[in-house]
Amino acid sequence: MNLLVNKPLESPECDRARLDLAGSAAFVELYEQNSKAIYYLALRLLGDPQKAEDATHDVFLKAYRKMGQFRGDASVKTWLYRIAINHCRNLHQAWQERHVFSNADQAVWDSAPAPTKSPLHALEAKELGQRIQSTLDQIPTEYRLILLLLADDELSYQEIADLTDQSLDAVRGKIHRARKAFATTFAQTA
């Protein structure tokens, strides 16, 4: 990932070699290593696969524009998560202002089928996904974000605290409550 720091976008005059993503090795690497995590976060925060795809696209496009500003203070993944969280938050605010609500539990699984081995397995995966989405939708937004970040093994507690703009102690305290809220709500969705 040091490539990103060493090879920023120098000027608005894009290098012709960068017209093709394949020519930008650092950005391709960035996308390949993080697209799944960013897409999943967007999917569960927004609850809609099409909106999640749009959000992931926008997050990486923003990242491409800002690659030159990335200072390396945080990990690249944390930086991308920060962009994604802010983007999803802005979308939610815009929807609330326009009174648009996403209710796409079914669409999540209709348009984003999992690679499964059997119809029974597919059904189980679909049900699990619906239950998790439903559970996350019902618990407080703050807990939802903490749990989604916590599920990423690569993030430390300190990084979760930074991403949620809270102290480390505050996050530690909320993790237990978030887990409890999830467990209780998940049991009710059975």
């Binding site: 960068r18 017209l19 093709d20 993503l21 394949a22 930008s24 950005f27 996308y31 697209s35 799944k36 995590a37 897409y39 999943y40 999917l43 569960r44 696969p49 795809e53 992931t56 696209h57 990486f60 496009l61 491409y64 984003a112 999992a114 690679p115 499964t116 995966a125 699990l128 996904g129 998790i132 749990l147 989604l148 916590l150 599920a151 093994d153 978030a178 887990r179 999830f182 467990a183 998940f186």
Partner: peptide, 29 residues
């Protein structure tokens, strides 16, 4: 286990839409 592990197993099943990389490439272009 009932929170992070469930979310991890859910995340493992989700795939990034295959057209996204091309769409992003077009946007960058």
């Amino acid at each position: 286990e009932s929170a992070e592990e469930l979310i991890r197993s859910d995340a493992a099943r989700i795939t990034v839409p295959p057209g996204l990389a091309q769409r992003l490439s077009d946007s960058v272009r």
